[in-house]
Simulated scan of single mutants.
Amino acid sequence: MCVEVWDGEKPVQWWTLVDAAVVAHQPHSVDPERYDIVLGAGVRAEGGDSALPATPHFELFAGTTAAAAAGAGRCSAVDGLFRPRVDPAPVALELIGCEPAEPLLAVLRRPGGAERDWACLLVLDRHGAVMASHNVGLAVTEARPSVLGGTLVDITLTDGGDDRPSPAARPVWAEWHQGPPTEPNLWAPYDAQGRAAWLDLATRAWRVPAPRPDRSGGEHHLDGRFVTDVPGLHCAIAEALLGPGRYFGREWNALKDCLGGGFGVVPPFTLTWHDSEIARRALADVVEDPEDGLSYFEDVVQLLERCGVTVVLRGAQQCAVLPVREASEP
């Protein structure tokens, strides 16, 4: 859920309630048309002014469907939102089988003195190309001989950071470990989280080798059989325009940037979207901009056409069904 704090004229703060669940509700003591609702949720401040307006009111939104775009309701007060919160305790990170070199050796020689030092963990494929990266602080809790033997060491870092990949990334990394994909639709068996992890790798991969010069014209064919969510839509568009494992945006604004040039393909060109009804139905209730009221599918088609792309929508044929790959435990 999202809570917008209004000052009477416009929203000035935004809060996200994570994993919100209704704990209790009852009619309001003064106005029986209203309710007092108790939610259990994680709270995340998204931005805006820090001070509470003198006479605030609160708009509530839930989800990304067309129905939610109109709002889930409003309320006159939110108790428990504006209070200091303790940051979660750091979660340690285990580095197994390290062969330390400088500057890591220097850190190990002065344990407890490296709280401000940082390192970048690089995830490599079998050819040595970087697939992903992760920044970590070098506050070392413990260093010991590795369970893998030899002269290797295992190192425990006090805090592994808060941008760790989700478990859904594990099978995707395993796929890419053999090298960037060369066959179409290898992203299709994954769920939305896995497809988002696929886009994470493609985002880095488009830079290496350097992006090819922009070309325009011609006809590109988008295989729409597996476009059942937003990440899948962007996987399919990139594959249609540039080939497997390539990048051409991961959400509406990034797609708009890519259409402006510098990513290998630039309008005008023709995009023939086969089985487009699959995406139209799957994304009918996904709304990016509540102001225009269009579904995500319609917004993307409109953006493409406005940027000079001729979009040809072909009807859906029978959709092939692929099994969803389950995410491994971390």
Rank of each mutant, 00 (worst) to 15 (best):
Q317M: 04
E94C: 02
R215I: 09
A240W: 03
T182C: 09
G308V: 08
L121P: 05
E219R: 10
G150V: 05
P244H: 04
D154S: 14
S216R: 12
D87L: 10
V107M: 05
H177I: 04
L304A: 08
Q318K: 12
D257R: 12
P330W: 12
I237P: 00
L255M: 09
V286D: 14
G315I: 00
D200I: 09
L52D: 07
G218M: 07
T182S: 13
G179Q: 10
G308C: 11
A89N: 07
R44H: 07
T270E: 08
S133M: 09
A132K: 04
L199D: 04
G260M: 08
G293Y: 12
V107A: 13
D299W: 02
E329N: 04
A139F: 06
D163T: 13
A68R: 01
V3S: 03
G308E: 02
A89P: 15
L121S: 06
L304C: 07
D191Y: 03
V266N: 00
W206Q: 06
A77P: 10
F263R: 00
A238D: 12
D87R: 02
E46S: 05
W206V: 10
V23E: 13
R74Q: 05
A238Y: 03
E288F: 06
R195A: 12
V287Q: 02
A54I: 14
R246A: 02
H221C: 08
V265N: 00
R74C: 13
D223F: 00
A70S: 10
M131I: 09
D159M: 10
P323I: 06
V30Y: 10
A54P: 13
A279P: 03
A132W: 14
T158Y: 05
L60I: 12
D257P: 02
P323Q: 04
G249S: 06
L255Q: 01
R215D: 03
A282G: 10
Q13G: 03
P184D: 15
G179P: 02
P268G: 14
E239D: 08
